[in-house]
């Protein structure tokens, strides 16, 4: 019990202020966006707490306000959610720290998101085992709290803000997303899907306006995978082919 309290206290004492501030402002922008799209405050807050992944939330607002069919919304969200899988896979072993799986793990997994993941991976692997879960939930409470406050504030002040300020808050979301994507990129193979996605979107917006997001993702992602990853993902296939080709030449 003392360890539990110590972990929680540690999370609040060492709260990651700068990432929390950026997250909060982005959710203020999301609140402004929701108000502009005639979304309800309850809807907006529901997505912040029970979806807790800004790209998915923006897609939901976009798809719902465009009367898109349920399946395109679900498919687009499911594809953006994929990035949560590798994060969860790498974080959970540190949280579990060798003990048996518990029901609490499922609740913990729900809060995996970009900022959560970065801040957890920075500290949790170096903590005593019993402090890890409490620390993680303390961090989740801070970040979800800050995001909900931002969403509500943005929603409520949207009408009173000078129009340029409201616009600048909405603008924060796309630039925050793109910098996040670039931040995770290391090699050309990581930058390629970003560039192809940016360039593909205007094209698919013209060709198939209702399915543009999914088509941009599928076409851009597949092209980038085939061009840059297939070679590095299957180096053995090339090694096997080359000697055979040489033999054929020799023969």
């Amino acid at each position: 019990m003392t360890r539990t309290r110590a972990g929680l206290i540690k999370a609040f004492r060492n709260a990651p202020l700068a990432p929390a501030a950026v997250l909060c402002l982005s959710f203020v922008g999301f609140g402004v966006l929701c108000r502009g799209a005639d979304f309800g405050l309850a809807h907006a807050l529901y997505t912040t707490v029970f979806v807790f992944a800004l790209p998915a939330q923006v897609i939901l607002v976009d798809q719902i306000s465009r009367h898109a069919p349920l399946w395109t919304a679900a498919l687009a969200v499911a594809f953006t959610g994929v990035r949560l899988l590798p994060m969860t896979v790498s974080l959970m072993p540190h949280l579990r720290a060798g003990r048996r799986p518990r029901r609490l793990d499922y609740i913990a997994a729900h809060f995996v998101a970009v900022t959560m993941w970065i801040e957890s991976m920075r500290r949790i692997p170096f903590m005593p085992r019993a402090m890890r879960m409490p620390y993680y939930f303390g961090l989740a409470a801070i970040l979800v709290g800050v995001s909900s406050t931002g969403t509500t504030a943005g929603y409520l002040i949207a009408g009173d803000l000078p129009r340029t300020v409201a616009a600048s808050l909405i603008f924060l979301t796309p630039i925050y997303f793109l910098l996040g994507l670039i931040g995770a990129a290391r090699k050309m193979a990581d930058y390629a899907p970003i560039i192809l996605g940016l360039c593909g979107a205007p094209l698919f917006m013209k060709i198939a306006p209702s399915f543009d997001l999914i088509l941009t993702g599928l076409a851009g992602g597949t092209a980038s995978y085939l061009l840059f990853r297939r070679r590095s993902a299957a180096p053995r296939a090339i090694e096997v082919v080359t000697p055979i080709a040489e033999h054929a030449d020799a023969g």
Binding site: L178, P193, L196, G197, L213, Y225
Partner: peptide
């Protein structure tokens, strides 16, 4: 799958 999701979010940014 990760490439598709990256391109999709980039597409969302462009839109």
């Amino acid at each position: 799958v990760r490439d598709v999701s990256t391109a999709l979010v980039a597409g969302l940014v462009a839109r």
